[in-house]
Design a protein around this nucleic acid. Sequence first.
DNA 1: CAGTGGTCTAGACCACTGG
DNA 2: CAGTGGTCTAGACCACTGC
Lengths: 279, 279
Amino acid sequence: MIRRKASPGLNLPDASMAASQIFPADTPGAAAEAAPSATPAFSPLYQQIKGLILQSLEAGEWKPGEAIPSEMDLAARFRVSQGTVRKAIDELAAENLVVRRQGKGTFVSTHAEHHVRYRFLKLMPDSGDRDAEGPASRTILECRRVRASAEIARSLALRTGDAVLQVRRVLAFGGVPTILEDFWLPGNTFKGLTAEQMASFQGPTYALFELEFGVRMVRAEEKIRAVAADAQQAELLALAEGTPLLSVERLSYTYNDVPMELRRGLYRTDTHHYRNDLS
Amino acid sequence: MIRRKASPGLNLPDASMAASQIFPADTPGAAAEAAPSATPAFSPLYQQIKGLILQSLEAGEWKPGEAIPSEMDLAARFRVSQGTVRKAIDELAAENLVVRRQGKGTFVSTHAEHHVRYRFLKLMPDSGDRDAEGPASRTILECRRVRASAEIARSLALRTGDAVLQVRRVLAFGGVPTILEDFWLPGNTFKGLTAEQMASFQGPTYALFELEFGVRMVRAEEKIRAVAADAQQAELLALAEGTPLLSVERLSYTYNDVPMELRRGLYRTDTHHYRNDLS
DNA sequence: CAGTGGTCTAGACCACTGG
DNA sequence: CAGTGGTCTAGACCACTGC
């Protein structure tokens, strides 16, 4: 089970013994029961605590936007010191899975909050001020159930021919069509998603995924290229055929590195640019 | 000067008093003397310690690749606990300014190390394996001293007409010209840089900057667009005029958010892609 | 005011590195 | 083996939030 080093203090035999019993059905919720064999033996205690919190997040014990238990509560639940819980939460916060708010608590992060509503969209107006251009207007061109091609299936870890939802839409900023994108979602998980639902939902699409399907995108990988607009793309974006466009292929993951969305976007970059910070 | 809260422990009056005297010429090296008024009052102790370490890094007290003093030594120097120093170094490590190596020490990070030699270059071969394509071959097309245009000057925080070094070069991977880039450096700081020096230097250009000019690029901002190759660009990259190319404008900073290089690159993306990880 | 996360300390032990 | 960073704990106090 859990690896426990020699008692860290000299006078804490009880705490030490207790810590070796983290995994028994001590913890409320179904998470602990779900994956009994997934316990990563031989790693620092705080990593194991992090893993346990992760399981609870994944199992939906706390929903996006909700507060998780206080550090003291978690320390008591897992029978470790507050400092150890703190270090576990530090890492979760660094990965943007939770957000700490002094005096209030630690909250499950969500794509629904205003200040992170474009967390995965790096396209910025050249003015640099996203708010100045107002909210994006979205036009759903297509939303249908199709069979996954070999390529789509591979990206989403499905089998060729499995059902996937394919969506095509155009985003316009200040009335100017700027992004044309297609995306594919596993049909099983997103059963019942309709164009109407997407069109009427206020807020980011990723927030809709959280609310309606319980799917939280936690990270993504993008591959970016320069391409020339073909006739159809040019028409949809109201520009000349052959115009250079930024091609952005994004694979988004939920917990445990499970891919959940493949998105292919074409961005016009005469008035906007893709911004990236390196360090 | 420094803000010091009430004594944290009950039985540590000495340590508490000592901590309020961090700034006197207690510290070896010239750093402490250099910026007497830059002390950020009213911030957590570890942030202040971080700032002091930063000043020493900036002043060159420890060179890239060298080890900085151990946590114990720094704790003694600054009269704080090891844990406080640790938290300061944690942040510096998170910003890639230093690298920790268990059992060995903490080292000033450098662009010269093999595994980070393309820290700022996000272009990847489609195969995904940078090593497979071998080292880049560099062709310096131009390296001359010019007067800064208004635009260049603004980016580099200079005055229009100030001397800047302008370099143009082509990078080829596996014999295929892939990147055409121009970059501009402040003439004062990089006095004496020649095309020969750049051509003969083995390793990343940013490593040369560290070794020969003591300039460490610590972060950068990129703006990415899709553009069509003009006649000259097409010829230099050996492709057809009008080919879509990725335009990458990078502004690199050294310590204290001082801009030190403006770089404009054109990447061909038929065999490579710009890779970005979002979280 | 109580409860939360944030800071700071002190001390013990572990894991890794190199002489 | 000594020295380094890494983990873990316990306890105190600070800063912020909301009742």
